[in-house]
Design a protein around this nucleic acid. Structure first.
Length: 412
DNA sequence: TCTGGGGTCCTTTTCCTT
DNA sequence: TCTGAAGGAAAAGGACCC
């Protein structure tokens, strides 16, 4: 039978940080805010000491932080003060001012991510990436993958990862991805859980609907408004009622999920669909008063996306922007052209046309640039465009839209 | 003093063409 | 030339995930 594992690293970011700063073990630590300059600053003040010898008292504290940002991860000791992921740093500073604040060091997390994934593919080659700290693994045809329902292979992978990296993970094994994902949460940290088809009623149905991967806060609220709190209650609803209430597709999916049905394969490789860069400003910016600053940021974002595309060997033909206003509402605008591009100046020009179609009378807190409908640079180069694109056409297409909104500012 | 950044996927709306 | 229907593609928005 099909045996699918979901492997989830335990408190990944925090655990990686504790490898570097073991002296912080057991202390309230939050990770968030800007990029890492912490090591350099700390080392500069402690000549001759290694990172793991620096006194705890000398780490930067949350109470001293000023600026925007959210918590990416908090250690258990910090969570006891009520701080947690996605909380604003300023709010967290009120709750736990004495917490050590470490900046996000994505390069480091990626390094450990590659290491543990290499270990897994060495033991079970059918692995699907689900972000930096999670994977699905198809145990079905791996030698020993069926033993004890997958438990022995799961344990072996856990041990091999720990011996190499010092990091722990939790694994769930089940007949499909949906159940495996839920199972991996059962015995955290450093646990293994096996869920079979016959365990549906006892292990899955008592859980909250929110535990289903794909049911977020909105869907959960709607389910609750109909008196559906648990997966078992969801399973008890008629398929037709679910389709009438949530739409054909979503309704059918909810029904399948509640009954533990999921036949999605483990996908070992996939092509990216879009690449983007966005940034939240230190302070909200005004399109007129801060025009120069905004223009500089805008150009830089376009250059960063272009660099990302070129480095990874892709080009795209849908260029778009994203704006977030001071009231946190956001809008997007995009344009699709006939030929693929990864050129910074071209992206900048097209993104500029998109910007002209957006309302700019409110202050901005975020600006983003996205390139979608990607194709490998190689394939894109071999394509003959159906129609030679002319700048005049874009300009007229854009000005048609501008005319509809007198509040739109033509600034870029 | 709220609320990051980088994605995917789906639904709805809008626009264009026939 | 106007109107409306239909269908498809593109655009926009939003939910969700890590």
């Amino acid at each position: 039978m099909r045996r699918i594992a979901h492997l989830d690293m335990d408190a990944f970011y925090a655990s990686v940080e504790l490898l570097r700063y073991p002296q912080l073990k057991g202390m309230p630590v939050v990770i968030g805010g800007g990029r890492r300059q912490a090591d350099d600053a700390l080392l500069e003040r402690h000549e001759g000491l290694a990172l793991n010898q620096i006194p705890v008292a000398d780490f930067p504290l949350l109470r001293d932080y000023t600026g925007r940002g959210v918590i990416t991860t908090a250690t258990y000791a910090a969570r006891q003060f009520g701080v947690g992921s996605a909380m604003g740093l300023m709010k967290a500073a009120k709750l736990c001012p004495q917490a050590v604040l470490l900046p996000v060091d994505f390069a480091q997390y990626r390094h450990y991510s590659q290491r543990f994934k290499a270990i897994i593919t060495g033991m079970a080659p059918l692995m699907e990436n689900r972000g930096v700290d999670e994977v699905y693994i198809d145990f079905t045809d791996v030698p020993g993958g069926q033993r004890q329902g997958g438990r022995s292979l799961a344990r072996l992978i856990q041990k091999t990862i720990f011996d190499d990296t010092g990091l722990t993970c939790s694994v769930g094994v089940a007949p499909n991805k949906l159940l495996a994902k839920m199972a991996s949460e059962f015995n955290k940290p450093n646990g293994v859980a096996i869920v079979g088809e016959s365990d549906l009623e006892s292990m899955i149905w008592p859980l909250a609907c929110r535990k289903i991967n794909g049911i977020g806060p909105k869907a959960d609220e709607k389910l609750k408004s109909h008196g559906i709190e648990t997966i078992g209650q969801l399973a008890a609803r008629e398929l037709q009622w679910l389709m009438d209430t949530f739409g054909q597709r979503t309704g059918a999916w909810l029904h399948d999920a509640a009954w533990g049905r999921d036949d999605r394969p483990v996908v070992t490789e996939s092509e990216p669909v879009s690449m983007s860069r966005e940034t939240t400003f230190e302070r909200d910016l005004h399109a007129v008063r801060d025009k120069a600053e905004l223009g500089g940021i805008f150009t830089r974002l376009c250059e960063q996306v272009a660099t990302d595309l070129q480095r990874k060997g892709y080009a795209g033909k849908t260029i778009g922007i994203k704006l977030r206003f001071d009231d946190f509402r956001s809008v997007t605008r995009d344009i699709t052209i006939d030929c693929y591009t990864a050129d910074a100046a071209e992206i900048r020009r097209l993104a500029g046309l998109c910007l002209k179609r957006a309302p700019l009378h409110k202050r901005l807190r975020l600006l983003g640039v996205r390139v979608g409908t990607l194709l490998s640079a190689e394939e894109a180069a071999n394509l003959v465009p159906k129609m030679a694109p002319g700048p005049v056409e874009y300009a007229s297409a854009a000005s048609k839209t501008i005319a509809k909104d007198p509040l739109t500012l033509d600034l870029f």
